Amino acid sequence: EVPFKVVAQFPYKSDYEDDLNFEKDQEIIVTSVEDAEWYFGEYQDSNGDVIEGIFPKSFVAVQG
């Protein structure tokens, strides 16, 4: 069931425009499960802007 919160276990950096880049310990709200390997989610950056994109499930852990 979406949405749910995950926390980055590792930093994720990608050159693909659709990917969500983040640092370790970033909290991310997952709004869609793309497939067995990928989530789609969002978070607010330090400027208060909402950043969204896809990212690999293996880089995050589900909270709770």
Results as ranks from 00 to 15, higher is better:
Val2Ile: 11
Ile51Thr: 06
Glu52His: 13
Val7Gln: 04
Val50Asp: 03
Phe55Tyr: 01
Glu27Ser: 06
Ala61Tyr: 12
Glu42Gln: 14
Thr31His: 06
Pro56Asp: 04
Lys57Gln: 10
Val2Tyr: 06
Tyr39Leu: 05
Pro3Gly: 05
Gln9Arg: 14
Gly48Glu: 03
Trp38Gln: 05
Val30Leu: 03
Asp19Ser: 14
Asp49Gly: 07
Val60His: 01
Glu52Met: 14
Gln44Tyr: 11
Leu20Pro: 01
Ala36Val: 08
Glu34Asp: 08
Glu42Thr: 12
Val2Gly: 05
Asp49Cys: 14
Gln63Thr: 12
Asp25Ser: 06
Asp18Thr: 14
Ile54Phe: 15
Glu27Arg: 05
Tyr16His: 15
Val7Ala: 03
Asn47Thr: 08
Val33Ala: 07
Ser58Cys: 15
Glu17Tyr: 09
Ala36Phe: 10
Ala36Ile: 09
Gln44Cys: 13
Gln44Glu: 12
Glu23Ser: 08
Asp45Ile: 08
Asp35Asn: 14
Glu17Cys: 15
Val30Pro: 01
Asp35Phe: 08
Asp35Met: 08
Tyr12Lys: 00
Ile29Pro: 01
Ser32Met: 09
Pro56Ser: 03
Gln26Met: 04
Gln63Tyr: 14
Val62Asp: 07
Lys5Ser: 08
Lys57Glu: 04
Val50Leu: 12
Asn21Pro: 07
Asp25Met: 07
Leu20Arg: 01
Phe22Cys: 04
Gly41Phe: 06
Phe55Glu: 00
Phe40Asn: 04
Phe40Glu: 01
Tyr39Pro: 00
Val2Ala: 07
Pro11His: 07
Lys13Leu: 08
Tyr12Ile: 00
Asn21Lys: 09
Asp25Gln: 05
Thr31Met: 07
Ile54Ser: 13
Val30Asn: 01
Glu27Cys: 11
Val62Ser: 08
Glu23Arg: 05
Pro3Leu: 07
Lys24Arg: 09
Val7Tyr: 09
Glu34Arg: 15
Val33Gln: 07
Ser32Thr: 05
Ser58Val: 09
Ser46Lys: 13
Val33Ser: 06
Ile29Cys: 15
Gly41Ile: 04
Glu42Ala: 10
Gly41Asp: 01
Lys57Arg: 13
Glu42Ile: 09
Ala36Leu: 10
Asp15Lys: 11
Thr31Arg: 08
Phe10Ser: 07
Glu27His: 07
Phe22Ile: 01
Asn21Asp: 05
Gln44Leu: 14
Glu52Phe: 14
Gln63Ser: 12
Lys13Glu: 06
Ala36Tyr: 08
Ala61Val: 14
Gly64Pro: 12
Val60Lys: 00
Glu42Gly: 11
Ser14Gln: 03
Glu34Trp: 15
Val7Ile: 13
Gly41Trp: 04
Lys24Thr: 07
Val62Trp: 11
Val6Cys: 08
Ser46His: 12
Phe4Trp: 03
Ala8Asn: 00
Ile28Tyr: 04
Pro11Leu: 06
Val6Asp: 00
Asn47Pro: 02
Val7Met: 07
Val6Trp: 03
Glu1Lys: 12
Pro3Thr: 04
Glu17Asn: 09
Asp35Thr: 08
Ser14Cys: 07
Val7Thr: 09
Glu17Asp: 11
Gly53Arg: 02
Lys24Trp: 04
Phe10Leu: 11
Lys5Arg: 12
Thr31Phe: 05
Phe55Ile: 02
Val60Ala: 04
Phe4Cys: 06
Phe4Ala: 01
Asp19Leu: 07
Val33Met: 08
Tyr39Asp: 02
Ser46Pro: 10
Lys57Ser: 11
Phe55Gln: 00
Ile29Gln: 05
Gln9Ala: 08
Ile51Leu: 13
Tyr16Ala: 14
Ser46Ala: 13
Asn47Tyr: 09
Gln63Met: 14
Tyr43Thr: 04
Asp18Gln: 14
Phe4Tyr: 04
Tyr43Ile: 06
Leu20Cys: 05
Glu1Ala: 12
Gln26Ala: 04
Asn47Asp: 07
Asp15Ile: 11
Glu17Thr: 11
Glu1Thr: 14
Val7Asp: 01
Asn47Glu: 07
Ile28Asp: 00
Glu23Val: 07
Ala61Ile: 14
Glu52Ala: 15
Phe22Asp: 01
Asp45Val: 08
Tyr16Cys: 15
Gly64Tyr: 11
Ile29Ala: 03
Val7Arg: 10
Asp19Asn: 14
Glu52Cys: 15
Tyr43Met: 06
Val60Met: 02
Glu52Asn: 11
Ser14His: 02
Ile28Glu: 01
Phe4Ile: 03
Gln26Pro: 02
Lys13Cys: 13
Phe4Lys: 01
Val62Gly: 08
Lys57Tyr: 06
Phe4Asn: 03
Asp35Leu: 08
Tyr12Val: 03
Tyr39Met: 03
Phe10Lys: 12
Ile29Phe: 08
Ile54Lys: 15
Asp15Val: 10
Phe55His: 01
Glu27Asn: 05
Gly53Asp: 01
Val33Asn: 09
Gly41Met: 03
Val7Glu: 02
Val33Cys: 08
Val33Pro: 04
Phe40Tyr: 13
Glu34Gln: 14
Lys5Leu: 11
Gly48Val: 01
Ile54Cys: 15
Ser14Ala: 04
Gln44Gly: 04
Val7Leu: 06
Phe55Ser: 02
Gln63Leu: 14
Gln63Gly: 10
Gln26Ser: 02
Asp35Ser: 14
Ser14Glu: 01
Phe4Pro: 00
Phe59Ser: 07
Glu27Pro: 05
Glu1Leu: 13
Lys13Gly: 04
Gly48Asp: 04
Asn47Arg: 09
Ala61Met: 13
Tyr16Pro: 06
Val30Ser: 00
Gln44Ser: 10
Ile51Ser: 07
Asp49Gln: 13
Tyr39Ser: 00
Asp25Asn: 11
Asp25His: 10
Ile28Arg: 01
Val60Thr: 05
